[in-house]
């Protein structure tokens, strides 16, 4: 199908975007790489009156490394981050997950922040943000605020972003001396995951984050568990995520994947 009619605003500055959002609020949508939003428009699941294209704003296209974090601007494409020479060293979990985001033909245009704004519960970047405990940098004409990953995702394709706010970027912590593992199961490589899991070693034990099961990517911290204690913890977590049947998989299969992949990944990061 074709998108419904809308005005198109090519923003040159962040100020243009914030003014547009302040004026039009929920009737406006920010267009970055378009790999989620354009599909929503073509299927008429979204009908904004105004699209604000942010991809000609240079200052949003930066990847900046600070002492303990990497800040990724709203205009950074998935392919740009994959090609960033420091990625594997600074953000090893993202280096594992990013090749599973869509296909080469969509990563070339899709942005990191766009994937977060879309907030598909099966998507890899929201999962990585939650697993790493990153922050979303929101900005409106009135204020700037930082929202923790766990508070940002409010439900299936819902976020804590207000209608007048731009996701200006995200901040991902650089965690030294840890181990990371990522795995997902999808019908085909590049499809949205049926279940995706990310594990990190923490000072006190391990964190497992799961996407594709609950309405939002969900993380759980445990002390160092082994054997049947780990099995019990994973089983309880798998049930708490509230898996549902759909055309891709049954709830039971999803719980099975959480238990099996979770156990494998925790074994990998604690090895």
């Amino acid at each position: 199908m074709k998108p419904p009619a809308f005005d198109y605003l090519r923003a040159e500055t962040v100020g243009d975007v914030l003014d547009g959002l302040a004026q039009h609020g929920g009737d406006a949508r920010v267009l970055a790489g378009g790999q989620s939003l354009m599909a929503m428009l073509n299927m008429r699941l979204a009908k904004p009156k105004l699209l604000i294209d942010i991809m000609r704003i240079r200052e949003l296209r930066k990847i900046e490394r600070t002492a303990d974090a990497v800040v990724i601007g709203a205009g950074v494409r998935q392919a740009d981050l994959l090609a960033w020479p420091d990625l594997a060293e600074a953000l090893p979990l993202v280096a594992l997950a990013l090749p599973c985001v869509g296909h080469m033909q969509t990563r070339s245009r899709g942005t990191i922040c766009g994937s977060l704004a879309h907030a598909d519960p099966s998507a890899e970047m929201p999962l990585a943000l939650v697993a790493l405990g990153g922050e979303v940098l929101l900005r409106s004409a009135r204020r700037r605020r930082r929202v923790a990953a766990k508070d940002f995702f409010a439900g299936m394709m819902l976020t804590a972003r207000s209608d007048d706010e731009l996701i200006e970027g995200i901040s991902l912590p650089v965690i030294n001396g840890s181990n990371f593992a990522f795995r997902e199961v999808a019908r085909r490589h590049g499809d949205f995951a049926i279940v995706a899991c990310a594990a990190t070693k923490t000072p006190s034990g391990v964190r497992l984050a799961v996407g594709g099961v609950a309405d939002v990517p969900t993380a759980r911290d445990w002390p160092r568990l082994e054997g049947s204690a780990l099995d019990d913890a994973l089983n309880a977590f798998a049930y708490e995520l509230g898996a549902r049947d759909d055309v891709h998989a049954t709830a039971r299969y999803r719980r099975d994947l959480v238990r099996m992949i979770g156990r494998d990944l925790i074994g990998e990061v604690l090895r």
Binding site: G34, M38, L51, M104, Q105, R109
Partner: peptide
């Protein structure tokens, strides 16, 4: 850049 022309205006 490889581009889906149906996802681009």
């Amino acid at each position: 850049m490889l581009t889906r022309s149906c996802l681009t205006l």
